[in-house]
């Protein structure tokens, strides 16, 4: 079932996926968030989202609709002007990004974010920064990552900046997984990558889904994202637009994409 944001009765507060009373105590959510970089324009206008535990939630929308801003707010890189961010019912709106890993959250940012002049292993060690006081746990986490992604072990002495774009993406994923997060925010995972690599990235996201991690995926690659999705939100002009289960979106994809191309 798909519904329009306008269908949700005004004043009812949070959106209620499936028309049921949402269990807002679990998962990562944003409620009535308004945000902007300058005083005169709003990038997000009263947006509410919920990433349910163990599910893949996909956030879609045309360029400039506020998707990336929503992600920045969810991870604390940007403070909303009003509204709240909640993790398992606890308000975390003001928790700075460096404390979020400890809450079990992680962000896979858009574009290149490796530390280019550090080696692959050093990049991973930075991902394990929270474990820095416990050398043994740090090396255990490192071994776990090498077991999970054997390629990283091969490259471990290489400078991250010398790797190809796809290889760097794997380093970023490995770095993020060092903290073994429960809730993962992913921003445009396929931007700037070769098609073969893109497939691998989505396979990896599918694996994260199988592992029952909570995933919020922001993506331009609508088809691939919806294929993985349990629940889909769309934004338009910084407002909630459509939302619903994957099934409701699959047959409307063409129309949706076409409507966005007008922007």
């Amino acid at each position: 079932m798909m519904r329009h944001a306008a269908d949700v009765p005004a004043g009812s507060g949070r959106p209620s996926p499936n028309g049921l009373v949402a269990d807002t105590s679990a998962g990562l959510s944003m409620r009535g968030v308004t945000a902007g970089y300058y005083s005169h324009d709003l990038v997000l206008n009263n947006v509410s989202l919920l990433a349910r535990p163990g599910k893949v939630t996909v956030l879609l929308g045309p360029n400039g609709s506020g998707k990336s801003t929503a992600l920045r707010i969810l991870y604390g890189l940007l403070r909303p002007r009003s509204g709240q961010v909640l993790l398992d019912g606890r308000e975390i709106t003001a928790v700075p990004p460096h404390r979020r890993l400890a809450l079990g959250m992680a962000l896979l940012p858009q574009g290149r974010s490796v530390f280019p002049e550090l080696t692959v292993q050093e990049n991973l060690e930075i991902g394990g920064w929270l474990l820095m006081r416990d050398r043994r746990r740090l090396s255990a986490a490192l071994e776990a990552i090498y077991a999970r992604y054997p390629l990283l072990k091969e490259w471990r002495q290489k400078q991250a900046g010398s790797l190809s774009g796809g290889q760097q993406r794997l380093v970023e994923i490995g770095r993020m997984m060092m903290a073994s997060p429960r809730v993962i925010l992913i921003d445009e995972p396929s931007v700037g990558l070769a098609p073969v690599i893109v497939d691998q990235v989505y396979e990896e996201i599918a694996r994260l889904k199988e592992e029952q991690r909570t995933i919020l995926l922001v993506d331009q690659n609508v088809r691939a994202a919806v294929a993985l999705a349990d629940y889909v939100y769309t934004l338009e002009y910084g407002r909630n637009n459509l939302e619903g289960e994957r099934g409701a979106f699959e047959d409307r994809l063409e129309a949706l994409i076409k409507s966005w191309l007008r922007f």
Partner: peptide
């Protein structure tokens, strides 16, 4: 050194 190379990436890594 990580902070020098990418401040935001260092922040989201818990630094």
């Amino acid at each position: 050194r990580a902070m020098a190379q990418n401040r935001d990436a260092a922040r989201i890594s818990g630094i």
